[in-house]
Nucleic acid binder design. Structure first.
Lengths: 335, 335
DNA sequence: GTGAAAGCGCTAACAA
DNA sequence: TTGTTAGCGCTTTCAC
């Protein structure tokens, strides 16, 4: 591997001149510049980013921590991050935390050692422990698809409570009254609780229903859990004409159960999902769902990081991006 | 940010001693070791990986290049890579190439600057251009979910031709004779052509059919393309009792079209997919498919990289992992 | 415009 | 066991 020194020798100039042709080409005479450029090409020289970073205190690298890249939702966000980073000349170190605090902390620690310029954090709850770790890192942090109400950390996500409310409102406008929900875990204060709350508020404000216990079941965000939750829900409340699901996977699970029961979607029961991951387009019937702008959220997260790095002011600490209901085939109008 | 020098000063030892307590703790007296450890904790010191890497010529970082992380197949492989890396203390820089040669080359170049210890390459065709870039990088490369028959580069994938053959054989054993295929692009010599060839060989050897033109349609690997290909296929060959699809997405697209036509799967037509991504479990009916061990392929790729780095010999240059047919609900037995 | 020299934070001989 | 010293490959004053 050729070094700057060898390039200097080969072109008969000093290493500072070589450095200059790379960083400030117009401050070196055309003649020497050409000699250096030729030598660079001939030797196949590439600058060593380690040595550079050691001096410049910049690595043009950010760390992205998330529970699980195989989650399509996360993957889509990461794609947005990566694309935005690419445009900025910033690379991404991917860290799966597997939802383990210990693994998260360990990753954070080595990211710090590697002198990343920033962190994008996508794991749900921001514990005291994580916050401490953030503090010691001395680099900008942005939360994507999550947020902290207790700490002041920049974040970008959607307004889950409102999105959930809007889903119910959408159903109500289609003439539905007996609306049920398969909620995520309410212990999940980012995507679980708010969506549940939005549902309850909508029931209260739009439908005049106070007690929702008989029309809600809980699931993890996954398919199988959705399947089982739908089974319980149908058993205790067979009169439902529509079920709002806290994720697309839950929705597909619910549709699967209904299919097994010989109940038609949307003719007998309408289903609304949440996320608008690609599977929403592939189900039978195609799923009507609350769309999160996952890719754009990733992009926005990287943009916030850029601003932080360049010390531009942020318009707001917590960014809420627009959600929208994508109408497909899983909801029947009762009007 | 505290440096090793400050830790040394704070604990009244030389910087080499501090360095030693981090790299060879037993070569320093217990007393000084404790003093140093205390200073490290108090100052919140973390070693600078840039400085370390500059000397050690190791960054414990590998680059992973793939067309698109939002592809569930790729995401699953990446997860395997990341998990295996984590166990080895190796981090992953994610690079989306967007299937652009220029973007691939640019990524390769900065990965080289960043002094990564290795590259995992998942983009399909290994062109001369890429191979040249690999050569100049001076680090181990491994191909995952792809391979090169013209260059000798270590790779891990499945035997796509045989997997395809096996899918047809499976169908034949279920009593199917009128078997069709929705193939991927045959211009894709990694996942497209071999699967098509496997199908043709199976038709010839098992079914005694030479001319397959009337029973094959082509698609990209995606849902919508599968939908349309199924439409064309059904039009020209309505007698088919089974269709083998070159990807799960194609299969779901095909099922979607059949549903729109009022044709029942598997009662009227059986469908077999390829990959066994998560959506195969979520469709109605659940998809019978040729499973690739995506996660394990990622792990294996990282393992090959580790061996290369430590100069352990490789058992074989091209590793073919086992595929298996996962039986679910989309195939009907005709026997 | 150009080069010499200092130094980024660390490891690894080499002495002591 | 410990400290001194010489770099790793680069950028950046500071003179000339």
């Amino acid at each position: 591997m050729a070094t700057i020194r060898e390039v200097a020798r080969a072109s008969g100039v000093s290493i500072s001149t070589v450095s200059r042709v790379m960083n400030a080409p117009d401050r070196v005479s055309p003649e020497k510049r050409m000699r250096v450029e030729r030598a660079i090409k001939e030797l196949g020289y590439t600058p060593n980013a380690l040595a550079r970073g050691l001096i410049s205190k910049q690595t043009d690298t950010v760390g992205v921590l998330m529970p699980d890249i195989s989650n399509p939702y996360a993957a889509e966000v990461v794609k947005g991050i990566e694309d935005a980073g690419h445009a900025l000349g910033i690379h991404v170190i991917l860290c799966n935390t597997d939802s383990s605090a210990e693994r998260t902390l360990r990753n954070l620690s080595v990211l710090r050692q590697k002198q990343v310029d920033g962190i994008i954090f996508m794991s749900k709850a921001i514990t005291e422990e994580f916050y401490q770790a953030f503090q010691t890192m001395n680099v900008p942090i942005v939360l994507v698809a999550t947020e902290s109400l207790v700490y002041d950390i920049p974040s970008v996500k959607i307004d889950d409570e409102q999105a959930s409310y809007d889903a119910v409102q959408y159903l109500a406008r289609k003439g539905h009254v007996n609306i049920g929900m398969i909620s995520g875990p309410i212990g999940d204060t980012i995507a679980g609780l708010p969506r549940y709350k939005g549902f309850r508020r909508a029931c209260r404000e739009i439908l005049g229903i106070e007690d929702t216990a008989s029309r809600v079941e809980f699931a993890t965000f996954h398919f199988h859990s959705g399947y089982e939750a739908m089974s319980r829900l149908y058993e205790k409340q067979p009169r439902l004409t529509a079920v709002f699901c806290a994720s697309d996977e839950i929705a597909l699970g619910a549709m699967s159960l209904l299919h097994d029961l010989g109940i038609a979607v949307p003719d007998d029961i309408s289903i609304v999902g949440f996320d608008n991951t690609k599977i929403a387009r592939m189900s039978i019937p195609k799923l009507t769902t609350v769309a999160q702008p996952m890719y754009e959220m990733g992009k926005a997260g990287m943009e916030v990081l850029r601003r932080l790095r360049e010390e531009e002011p942020l318009d707001q600490l917590r960014i809420y991006m627009k959600h929208v209901i994508v109408e497909r085939e899983s909801v029947k109008s009762l009007m």
